[in-house]
């Protein structure tokens, strides 16, 4: 799971009012290089919850993202490169996602979060 996905995921357990952001527990992070597409980043930027991304990246060991960001920064190649790395190149390979309200853990194995709910959570 990469951080653009983490930034979109929200716990949908029955009764949870605010399931975002899921807290990340890291056992293993892997980095994989992918092609740089500034257009994709510009399209994604307005949809991102910035603080959640900065925190998630930090948990994964990447601390280069600025605390605050606005769309004017999309002009800067340096900023885009950092955003690219944080969103698309860091993979949570093993670990867990934790519901911020209930503390329920969604395990992540081989990079795949298990979001299946138990029957009483639907």
């Amino acid at each position: 799971m990469r951080l653009f996905t983490h930034n979109m995921l929200s716990s949908n357990i029955k009764g949870v009012a605010n399931g975002f952001p899921l807290r990340i527990e890291v056992d293993q992070v892997v980095e994989k290089q992918v092609d740089f597409h500034p257009d994709f980043l510009r399209n994604m930027f307005p949809k991102l919850e910035w603080k959640a991304l900065v925190d998630a990246a930090r948990t994964m060991g990447y601390t280069e993202l600025p605390e605050e960001a606005d769309s004017s920064m999309l002009e800067s190649e340096e900023f885009l490169r950092k955003l690219h790395h944080a969103l698309l190149e860091l993979h949570l390979e093993e670990g867990a996602l934790v519901c911020p309200e209930t503390g329920r853990k969604f395990p992540v194995n081989k990079g795949i979060p298990n979001m299946l709910l138990h029957e009483d959570e639907v």
Partner: peptide
């Protein structure tokens, strides 16, 4: 190349 999730669409999508 996509990110994968193990989940049941019948339980609703856990997305913002």
């Amino acid at each position: 190349e996509g990110d994968l999730l193990l989940g049941d669409m019948g339980q609703g999508l856990a997305l913002r």
